[in-house]
Design a binder for these strands. Structure first.
Lengths: 218, 218
DNA sequence: GTATATTGTTAGATTGTTCTAACAAAATTA
DNA sequence: TAATTTTGTTAGAACAATCTAACAATATAC
């Protein structure tokens, strides 16, 4: 059994590994907002538990066991987010902080029940895939909106940033998962885009925004 | 803000104080399954935080502030139990362990939402009163079934023991909150009772059991 | 009312998680 | 490539929560 703290290290290491491939002590330290020496010694501890491959001055890597256990924490996190939105009426911008805590609850039954009540969802409210009961993630093949071109029609399927601010920004513009966007034009200078969707005549999205939106081409 | 650990001490001190009036370090130690010296030093810490009145060799007492904060932890516990039973389909014997963990979640909104979805319940699945938002408990004036006599008809309104074993025992006999019991006879020797309820022709309840059942006389 | 048992307290060690300070290795820049 | 910056490591301290051992006060029993 891993501690609350250990679960957090595993989870962020997993996330970083998926985002960037190689993970350094420094990056993990920044992500967790925990000083490097602390992270360093935790990595040695997790290496003793066969959850992380650790060698001095080498990038960090989760072992298969580590990946599985991290995946299961993320499963609990994302099931919780989905439960909060679907069954309790929270907005997608409100659930992260609560799920950060609920994910550490030790009760297989509790998360089984959530999964069942939700009908075994495959993605969370931000479109991120929910790992299966073995901790394995089914990767989805989305495109960044910023990689699409003028004239294309796409469906908004996920966001790669779940911060309060970003999600409120999207709420404010009526942008939700499932929305169909038509790309009217792309400004070559700053890569900003003009799109239409729903009842919006047209809306300008900066590259900062469009590269955080994942879409399926229709 | 109190730590997870501090919340547990406050909660059990509150419970013991309500059950027995005076609380000793020894009793609290046994209840928490934590050794006396540890409890002793935590009591000093909580005294520094003005949550407990502590004097050497004197019984322990929560301050008004301590009572309020303990009451709020118990509120979160009982709301959670109710939510697990009413909204997630758990049995009343399954919820204690999960609620012990969920009660420490730091999110006013989370428990507000539970309360709202449940329609502001006044009691938990075991019939225990849910403290209000000020941490105050509305005490209910029930009788122990063991204090009732032959010929009386009563409604089962609460249980004073929420252990898995006891609740499964009650489940096995079809005894649920709200059941109407007719007391057929009381055996003077061991105070065991013969009662009828629901579809049961007659059932014998030992004093061990009947003193853990709280009833309203009808 | 003394002896014994129980309860409470103090002192000091242990474990887990964090930190800062100092130093070492690797990467970057000039 | 030498100097500088960034990253990584080691050593040691701090804090919270726990423990055991030893001693002190109170309560109980004879």
């Amino acid at each position: 059994m891993n501690s609350y703290t250990e679960e957090n290290y595993l989870k962020e290491l997993f996330n970083l590994q998926n985002e960037k491939g190689e993970v350094s002590v420094n990056e993990l330290s920044k992500r967790l907002d925990i000083k490097m020496p602390t992270v360093n010694s935790m990595m040695k501890k997790l290496a003793d538990k066969k959850l992380v491959h650790y060698e001095s001055y080498k990038p960090l890597r989760l072992t298969e066991k580590g990946k599985k256990e991290a995946g299961l924490v993320i499963r609990k996190h994302r099931l919780t987010e989905m439960f909060l939105v679907e069954k309790m009426g929270f907005g997608w911008e409100e659930v992260h902080g609560i799920a950060e805590q609920v994910e550490h609850i030790q009760s297989g039954l509790f998360f089984e029940k959530m999964d069942e009540l939700l009908g075994h969802p495959k993605v969370d409210p931000h479109g991120s895939p929910i790992p299966d009961k073995q901790g394995k993630i089914q990767w989805l093949h989305y495109n960044k909106l910023s990689d699409c071109g003028a004239g294309e029609t796409v469906r908004l399927s996920a966001v790669t940033n779940s911060s309060d601010d970003f999600l409120k920004f999207l709420n404010g513009r009526g942008l939700y998962l499932g929305a169909e966007l038509k790309i009217k034009s792309v400004e070559p200078f700053d890569n900003s885009m003009v799109v239409t969707y729903g009842k919006k005549a047209s809306e300008m999205l900066s590259k900062m925004v469009s590269e955080k939106l994942l879409v399926e081409k229709l």
